[in-house]
Design a protein around this nucleic acid. Structure first.
Lengths: 354, 354
DNA sequence: CTGAAAGCGCTTACAG
DNA sequence: CTGAAAGCGCTTACAG
């Protein structure tokens, strides 16, 4: 009941007294200050959570805010302080559960901290990311979360000169100036390769799609281990530029089996590829893991239901999102950060397929 | 080379002449106007794309914008015009490909039109949606895209009173005041039920999870057709409140087969449930479609790879996103919209599983 | 701890 | 078609 008076205030106050007035009808900080009997600056300080206000006054202001249903105007705030109160997150795409889980974790933390997030989809295209960065940076975001490090020198300078706190996710850097949260893509792929070698496999194929930087790092890790074991065959390294999908996994598995009947293991760089491969094995009557071991990557939901259940390298994407968001929050507040690079590791989930 | 002078301008112009000046170093519309030799208002009109400026002046302004690398400040713009230039999209979650595809389509259209989008995840929780709406509306977005109609009267009033152009997606309404783009959830489920009846199935189960409004509408459509055919058995209607997943689909399928050995078809309300069901059938040795037909919903990627390939009802989520975004753009520009409700239909993809 | 003044960068209304 | 003035709602310095 009383609430209605706070929004319908347009008719009550400043009734077209001054002709040039542009009435938006919005409850402003001035309204709050007037009701609390303080100056707008003091009201501003209370609303912004500064502690330099006498408790008694602060209480009066809070009561006024409550009574009027006051909500600060983000635009006015951003204009006056030269800083917006939202966070920008740039990810390659939404069609990989990896990124949606990361995003949800970031959003959970940022929402609690009062920061809405802008999500930009780069589609793994550098020009698209550059355009997004350019556009979003003009909003002067409070913080920035970027996927990986694959960008041009001029973009790095753009970010640098904007002085926007920034955290990179999914990869690690040695540069102490760079803040990042992730795990070793190379190391993760090495763990999978070693696992297959330990299972006695020697003719091991690697299947990567999309060919983004992280996929190439995994290929590198895989290759290094196989070369050291003296069983690396470049013909078993399939790098397909098309986007990752079950259909592609099935297609590649079929081709591999036809060309290399002695194949005894396949490491798919993504679980959806592996699902396709596993189903194709079923279709072809190739026993898994009897004849061929199959391992996926990321360990997205659904692996346990596969036939056989799919072994996969579990990547900590929720944790990455969570830790990265908290780190960014510290940077945004100017608080010290323990370590610029946080390695969250990974875990090989061995199931029936290997 | 020349570009660097536009950003490094802080040292060049207004060198701490007036003491109170807060130097942001940003290139402003005033800089553009000065260089072009026009007033800021004229420059503003050119930048905003108004046609009421003499071509010659407009050209000078555009050249100045180009030369200085001027980018309008969104906050200042929003404050002065009482309108932001971004669009808010509220969806239940990111873990359903349905919504990520819809989102990508919306983003594609809005990006081209120059509107960044804010994405809010409601997690199917009304309180969460209410909080998001409250927060995002305070930014005075240029437009709003909402999933479905399931919200309280007070929220509807909040949206209404904000006068934000709004389009609803995934469901249809009769109300001519309401703008929406979607298809008939009831009709889609009826199509699946009829298809199974035509296949000679009589003991048909329905499996729905999450129990959001659209799932319940599908249950309703399914029920109506089976009742009309005289073969509705309430015990075969499984409505599970847990989130949809392959694991849940597998679990429910196993339970159903154990309790009702005479079952001859299952309609899963989501493809991930159906995938789990199909894999469980393989595991149990239940022939599909020999003994049991299986149909999914949405027709997300990967159905063709399943064993057997999964029949599913294809929903037009990309088209929904695309059409909804274009409709919203028209509303935002105050242009007339042909029809307030656009029904995009659906298509039953019959594959080997039914 | 508190406040009067100025300013953030743009656009709205009003005159010409 | 063009512009001088005022204002959007807040915060930053600067004084007390």
């Amino acid at each position: 009941m009383n609430d209605s008076s706070s929004t319908g205030g347009g008719a009550v106050r400043a009734p077209a007294a001054r002709s040039r007035r542009r009435a938006t009808g919005r409850t402003t900080l001035a309204d709050v200050a007037a009701l609390a009997g303080v100056s707008p600056i003091t009201a501003s300080r209370v609303v912004a959570g500064k502690t330099t206000v006498r408790p008694e006054l602060a209480e009066r202001v809070r009561a006024a805010v409550e009574h009027l249903g006051y909500r600060p105007d983000p635009s006015a705030r951003a204009l006056a302080s030269a800083k917006s109160s939202h966070v920008v997150v740039l990810i390659p795409l939404l069609s990989n559960t990896l990124f949606t889980e990361l995003l949800e974790a970031v959003q959970d933390v940022m929402w609690d901290a009062g920061y809405p997030i802008f999500v930009g989809i780069t589609q793994y295209r550098p020009e698209r990311e550059a355009a997004l960065l350019d556009s979003y940076l003009s909003h002067r975001p409070a913080g920035l979360i970027l996927t990986g490090f694959d960008r041009s020198e001029s973009q790095r300078r753009l970010i640098e000169s904007s002085r926007t706190p920034c955290v990179h996710v999914m990869e690690l850097s040695d540069d102490p100036e760079v803040h990042c949260v992730g795990f070793s893509q190379v190391g993760a792929a090495q763990a999978v390769a070693r696992h297959l070698l330990e299972r006695g496999r020697r003719r091991i194929a690697f299947v990567g799609a999309q060919l983004d930087p992280r996929t190439l790092e995994r290929a590198e890790g895989f290759r290094s281990v196989l070369q050291a074991a003296g069983c690396h065959d470049p013909r078993l390294e399939i790098l397909d530029p098309r986007p990752s999908s079950a259909a592609l996994g099935a297609e590649v598995f079929r081709r591999l089996m036809a060309a290399h009947p002695d194949l005894d293991a396949v490491f798919f760089c993504n679980d959806d590829l592996a699902h396709g491969g596993l189903l194709e094995a079923l279709r072809l009557g190739v026993p898994v893991p009897g004849r061929v071991s199959v391992v996926g990557f990321n360990d997205l939901p659904g692996n346990a239901q596969m036939l056989p259940a799919l072994s996969s390298l579990r990547t900590p994407r929720r944790e990455v999102g969570d830790v990265a968001a908290r780190m960014l929050l510290r940077l945004m507040r100017g608080e010290p950060v323990d370590m610029p690079a946080v390695d969250l590791g990974f875990e090989l989930k061995v199931r029936a397929s290997s």
